[in-house]
Design a binder for these strands. Structure first.
Length: 270
DNA sequence: ATGGCAGTACTATACTGA
């Protein structure tokens, strides 16, 4: 099973890129972030005409996540709230985090998929930075509840954090930069400590592999990127991972997203 | 240190992203 994560920066602007890439990549499930469209206006027909099943959790202008799958998915969960609700621990504070549409989850082939669009955080010390850190606190509780299902979990998405210096083109002085601050990294490591490992680093150790390049300053041409889109797997799936790659081709097309897809391949028979 | 580019909502310019 091949699972991809891709922040498309508006699915309506990136429709042909996404449809074309689905065909050439042959992925089974594509996890989209920043769809920037309410569910009623999501361009469903082109995906359905191509034979895909679609599950969306969107909002106007900002955020928005979706799952595109060759096979139907089951146990679809939109947002954090339903998981807390089922556990009898839903609060208004948790519910408020679902005003921003950043989480969608479903089950494929017995695997619990979790597709995330982590808040950007704006700048260190800002209100949005605080929101990002508190959002991770909710994610942590959410994952603990999901783990109780007993299924393996494949969590992916735009994490808006480069976990290590080797994930940034020029890491010097980046401790004061959003996506690289020690507190953000520490917070993400706390999530991974729940029992997740980075699929990409199972196969590739060297620096210089990125999933996002700033539109400005010709960052892609100069390969000044960041690796901030990740596949994090529970140990059983990490063992079954046989590849994890970044496909830079979509980033080099005209009018690209600023992110490019990251693909993990699992051999579930292994 | 700042701004640079892009998408959306709206219709000029503000907000957000990372």
């Amino acid at each position: 099973m091949k699972i991809a994560t891709w922040n498309v920066n508006s699915i309506r602007s990136r429709l042909t890129h996404a449809l074309d890439w689905l065909e050439v990549s042959g992925v089974d499930v594509l996890c989209l972030q920043e769809t920037k469209v309410v569910d009623a206006d999501f361009p469903r027909s082109p995906f359905e005409a191509a034979g895909y099943h679609l599950y969306t959790f969107g909002q106007k202008s900002y955020n928005g996540v979706a799952l595109v799958s060759r096979q139907p998915l089951t146990q679809v969960i939109c947002g954090f709230s339903p998981v807390f609700e089922a556990a009898g621990s839903l609060t208004e504070a948790i519910q408020a985090f679902d005003e921003q549409k950043r989480v969608i989850s479903a089950v494929a082939a017995g695997v619990r998929l979790v597709n995330l669009y982590v808040p950007n955080g704006s700048s260190i010390g800002s209100e949005k930075y605080d929101y990002k850190l508190r959002w991770f606190g909710v994610l942590r509780q959410y994952l603990e509840l999901l783990k109780a299902e007993g299924r393996p979990i494949a969590m992916c998405g735009d994490f808006n954090i480069a976990l290590e210096d080797r994930d940034i083109h020029n890491p010097e002085g980046k401790e004061a930069h959003i996506m690289a601050s020690p507190l953000e990294r520490e917070t993400l490591r706390g999530i991974l400590d729940l029992g997740f490992a980075d699929a990409f680093r199972k196969f590739t150790q060297e620096a210089g592999h990125y999933s996002w390049w700033d539109y400005r300053t010709a960052a892609f041409r100069r390969d000044m990127g960041w690796r901030i889109d990740h596949h994090y797997l529970t140990p059983d799936l990490y063992e079954q991972a046989i590849a994890c790659t970044i496909d830079k081709a979509p980033r080099s097309l005209p009018q690209p997203s600023d992110h490019t897809p990251v693909i993990v391949e699992l051999d579930l028979e292994r």
